[in-house]
């Protein structure tokens, strides 16, 4: 009884978290383990060149399956986020501008500086030129 005292809810409120963690792991791993056992006992692996092919619509891929994607659009998406976040925070800032203390003003300016810094960095890297 004395040994179990440390595990009571009053003394250790995180005990439930640990129980959930273990239960989740068991819940996820058990079916996978059962499937692996089943495969070992009964159903052998059946792999082959078609089955392992990357493309899966019945046609053979004509070129290399590993291709490089142009990352330009991705960079544009990231930079769009700068403006996106800026607008979301600037609007309430502008609405409440007259009642704000100096500290809040300085905070939002630092926030803007961080965002603009990112934009300037991207600009200087030449990301804004579409090649």
């Amino acid at each position: 009884m004395q040994a179990l005292q440390g595990f009571s809810q009053e003394e250790n409120p995180y005990i439930f978290l640990a129980v959930f963690l273990v239960a989740a792991a068991v819940f996820a791993v058990t079916p996978l383990a059962l499937a692996a056992l089943w495969a070992m006992k009964y159903s052998p692996r059946k792999s082959g060149p078609s089955k392992n092919a990357v493309y899966e619509c019945g046609l053979e891929s004509k070129t290399q399956d590993w291709v490089q994607f142009k990352s330009d659009y991705y960079l544009y998406g990231i930079i769009f986020l700068v403006f996106d976040v800026e607008v979301i925070f600037l609007l309430p800032f502008a609405v409440a501008f007259k009642t704000l203390p100096v500290g809040a003003f300085v905070a939002i300016m630092i926030f803007l500086l961080l965002l603009v810094e990112g934009l300037v960095w991207a600009w200087r890297k030449g990301v804004l030129n579409w090649k």
Binding site: K46, S50, A53, E56, L59
Partner: peptide, 13 residues
């Protein structure tokens, strides 16, 4: 050939 390849790509059973 495409039908056969599709069949090959299906997992067992």
């Amino acid at each position: 050939p495409q039908v056969v390849r599709l069949y090959n790509q299906m997992p067992e059973p």
